[in-house]
């Protein structure tokens, strides 16, 4: 019962607000002093359990985890000391594999054909990595397409023109895709069980808070950038929907 004194001490210092706080605190103090009778254990258990579920378990369980069929190193391929890829700028070097077609559409993840421009002989590896061995053996030898998992695939209702953004809007690949080009290992592909989207659309952060422009790829993010760049007319529905 000693603890009951504390709120009254506080109330002397402050006005009615502190007396209200005091009242609440005194109530909790009473509860704590008499924990089992109050059911706080249950409340706390529920609260902590739910917080655990909501903050830890749910974000973990929401996504499937799939490994790419092959571990591709962007870093090696873009290292000028190792691989000679034509292009003066980063953009041009990206486009060496992730090219625009003549009709202006974007080829996205390259087909095996592009890989085989260099890796043309399944018997002759160009590097020394086991990944390349596997790649030559499983795909090049049979000329089988690699079933890549796409991190940034938008849903079917979305129309996105890469050329409008990259060529006409002069955006870097990095603006939306981040430093993917510098990675040595392909990240685990995480698909949202409910929506079927890749985690990259919503962002790694479960709160959807982004610190970089490439952290999220939701409609609001597109609109935000359009507005920022003074391109409000591109927020019209039919610009990005089909």
């Amino acid at each position: 019962m000693e603890n009951q004194e504390r709120p009254s001490l506080d109330s002397k210092k402050g006005g009615w607000i502190s007396s209200l706080i005091g009242l609440i605190l005194s109530y909790y103090a009473k509860l704590i002093s008499n924990p089992f009778r109050s059911g706080l254990v249950y409340f706390g258990a529920g609260l902590i359990g739910a917080l655990f579920v909501g903050w830890v378990l749910f974000p973990f369980a929401l996504y499937s985890r799939q490994h790419q069929p092959l571990d591709f190193s962007h870093a090696i391929h873009l290292d000028e000391d190792i691989v000679e890829i034509e292009g003066d700028t980063d953009l041009e070097r990206c486009q060496y594999c992730h090219a625009f077609r003549d009709d202006g559409t974007f080829a996205g993840i390259p087909k095996l054909e592009t890989c085989m421009e260099c890796h043309d002989d399944p018997e002759m590896a160009l590097g020394e990595t086991p990944e390349e061995e596997q790649f030559l053996k499983d795909y090049v030898a049979d000329e089988k397409e690699i079933p890549w998992l796409s991190y940034s695939r938008q849903p079917d209702c979305v129309f996105f023109s890469h050329i409008a953004h990259v060529k006409m809007g002069e955006l870097d690949c990095r603006t939306c895709h981040g430093d993917h080009a510098k990675t040595d290992k392909l990240p685990v592909y995480k698909k949202n069980w409910i929506t079927g989207y890749s985690i990259n659309i919503w962002g790694k952060n479960i709160l959807g808070i982004k610190s970089n422009s490439w952290d999220r790829m939701k409609m609001d993010d597109c609109a935000e950038c359009h507005t920022e760049k003074g391109r409000e007319e591109n927020n019209a529905c039919f610009v990005c929907h089909k």
Binding site: F43, G46, A50, G54, F58
Partner: peptide, 26 residues
């Protein structure tokens, strides 16, 4: 009390908001 505690906890986590968004997309 346990349920109320759980509800408060869930409410303080991103789960309902993310779920609402995801099910709309679903």
């Amino acid at each position: 009390t346990l349920i109320v505690g759980g509800a408060v906890g869930i409410g303080l986590s991103p789960l309902p908001w993310k779920m609402a968004d995801d099910s709309a997309i679903w």
